[in-house]
Amino acid sequence: MGKENKGRTDKVSAMKPVFEEALAFAQETAPGAKTPSPGTPHARPSAAGLPPAIAPAVGAVQLMPRDENVQEVLRSRARLLARLQKTGVVEEARDQYLCFRLGPNELYGIPYACLEELMYVGSIARVPGTPRAIAGVVNRRGELLSVLDLRQFFRTDAHEDASQARIIVVQADGARVGLLVDAVEGNEFYVPARVAAPLSSDGVSNIEYVQGIYEGKVTLLNIRAMLADPGLVVNRSAA
């Protein structure tokens, strides 16, 4: 047996008392506590786990804890809850948004209310005479869907890796468009009251389509404003 194997065997042997200790602890009853009876919070309240003589009689009343130790646990929980409420623990109103990336590190968000579908980027047909920001159209289960290249639209940095690119299908007021993005990062919660107004400056393009900036890092889009612009929807502008 090599030194390494011998060392490993020694260490494994050293674990033996731990396993014995674990089994002994499993059998130990907490000091001052009675063995948990069916229906206490420590036991699974399922008829399958009860002795046959008890199982058929189990109902809501029988499952209520009567043990004094258990009742003390419930009382201490109630006291804890009362303390937490006094400290003003109140959830703020919040909504979900889909977070996506343009370029290597710019994060944007779309409120879930406008979100319809995520699509892999398949074949996008260019439409002659449309602005550069219109990537083209795709066939979405028989429907012609305009696809807006958001990187062009917001003039963000070029990003060569297209492997994670996706089309986010959004809708508002009956209009629908696909947004071509570099990667979808996941969903997040935001507190609408904490969305800061977008900063207007010469370097920012299409700011009218920005709802605001969340936590200084995510640009939340105003999808309703985007879809109200007839120049951004191919089938509308062609009509």
Binding site: V89, E91, F189
Partner: peptide, 14 residues
């Protein structure tokens, strides 16, 4: 964990 919610922060401290 919702880092930005007050409830999460206060519960974490509690």
């Amino acid at each position: 964990f919702r880092e930005h919610t007050r409830s999460a922060r206060e519960l974490s401290e509690a």
